[in-house]
Write a protein that binds this DNA or RNA. Sequence first.
RNA 1: GCGCCUGUAGCUCAGUUGGAUAGAGCGCCGGACUUCGAAUCCGUAGGCCGCAGGUUCGACUCCUGCCAGGCGCGCCA
Length: 583
Amino acid sequence: MTNYPIVTFFNFSCTRSYYGIDEARSVNLKHEISRLLSRAIEAAIRDGIFQEDLSGIDTKVEYPREQKFGDYAVPFALEAAKVLRKSPMEIGNSLAAYLEADPKIGKVEVVKPGFVNLFVSTNFLCENVKDIISSGDGFGMAVKDSPRRVNLEFVSANPTGPLNIVSARAAAVGDTIANLLEFTGDSVDQEFYVNDYGNQVSLLGRSVLARMRELRGGKADFPEDGYHGEYIKDIAALVSEKHGDEINKIIDDEDRLIDFLARKAIEYNLAGQKKDLEEFNVFFKTWFSERTLHETGAVMKALDLLASANGVYSSEGKIFFKSTEFSDDKDRVLVRDDGRPTYFLADIAYHNDKIRRNYDLLIDIWGPDHHGHINRLAGAMKALGYDEKHLIILVAQQVNLMMDGETVKMSKRLGQFSTMRDLIDEIGVDVARYFFVMRSLESHLDFDLALAKKESSENPVFYLQYAHARICSLFGEARKRGVRYDPGRASTGYFENEESITLMKHLARFPEEVSDAAEKFEPHRIATYLMRLAQAFHRFYTEHRILTDDGERTVAYLTLSDAVRVVMANGLRLLGVSAPEKM
RNA sequence: GCGCCUGUAGCUCAGUUGGAUAGAGCGCCGGACUUCGAAUCCGUAGGCCGCAGGUUCGACUCCUGCCAGGCGCGCCA
């Protein structure tokens, strides 16, 4: 086991942002078309073609499944047919006349039931390739008129041991969501809530004490529900060695001793968690201590606030929150009959604190074992008068770690768990992060560790990285051959073939995928997108030789490849996966 | 018993706020390297989208009821 240094790092802070990157020039075609459509509808109303109230009809833009239906499809005519009392085909034809004018649109077709299908102009796609290269790291980035200040809280594991696989999933997903939001113009603070208070803490302290007594040859007296992991012994040995004098001073005051050992164990565990997360490319701006909420009186203040909002009542010497008024199945205790606040009250105080730090949006990523708490916390926030839209709670579903077809059970108290560290050691950061992010958050993930390790060479991660490395190597070869590469001079006539056009369309989709993924907090979309992009590139590569005697053609195809490299690198960066130049 | 998540190809999973003929990776089988990286590409096979109703121009998607798996239902955190 690694010997982590014992350090405290509350208020540790680091900054992340994309402010250094060049101004974004990315065109989000889907958004553009949506705007075009709205304007077309307005124009049709102005010209007296549409006379009914259309405000309830969606102006959505979709991706058709089949290529013959164009690049974007507008089902507006189908949906408005009833209101307008016209046939969808007629409505579609009216709209088409207005849509055709835009230079980004090559062709508009109105077909069968009444879909309006749009084909992007090849000219736009070609110019876009050059824009991608000049935008570089900033391609796909968006700027918001009013950026949101977002607090994203995730992982927040108990400081009672090493991080497990579910925490690893939350870490990968949370960090990618933060990247996506920053990339699309918001400002995100990543936060880790440290549960360094309460029963589990003293249980941790008593577990360490028992192991320490064992080491000193005494009677173990190990707590029944204590933490059995081997790491407790390491902590006992380390603390015993480093803080022998302090321990001896309070050796007869068991309460103080347990408290002291618990604090040291928490520091040790936190340092280990932080180290593992950093190795996983996850950096938190704030490590928020639950204990401080109790010490500053913030917890009891939250109770007062709830009380003045008429949300609590006393019964049997306890104080309850009326959570049944917020779709909970029973009212929840806030303060026990001995006066001690519950975890729930502290959590309310914590979220109250976050809101008071002037965030526009709070996002929590919770584990599957906490989903039952969503309604009551959201209810408490509502009771305090906060807009429920400002709190979003995402649940990262469970991860089944599979070993030889069997599920590995995880239990910290029994001392058997598969740690995030084990995972990193086994399969590496890139593979782990990609695997966690490639599935949607709410799907239960079967993670076959043996398979991921054994077949790593045929892993989707390597497929993506290979595309990037292949392009880099291509440029290495081009340099060797003395090719003068100037993307600005690329003649786009060479792109008039199926593989190039497919590739250019995929490239143009990147800003849209990023935007959709950020808006819906669905990072797996990026993983899926990059897969398709890599596919399109590999296909292009096998069909078209890039370095030839034809100088113009060489520059053109290098330009297209370069754009793929940029997008692949940007996408992988969002996922926290490296984009190697060689493999 | 109640609540939440999931059920789509042999396996793991996508499927864009209801859209057109159901998708990918892996696995199976069969092809493609003298030249820029074959960690690649091309092709074949594989489906009552858990089941049954309902809503409408249209349902894998929404509603209801079942079935199956997982998780939660603590005055632990």
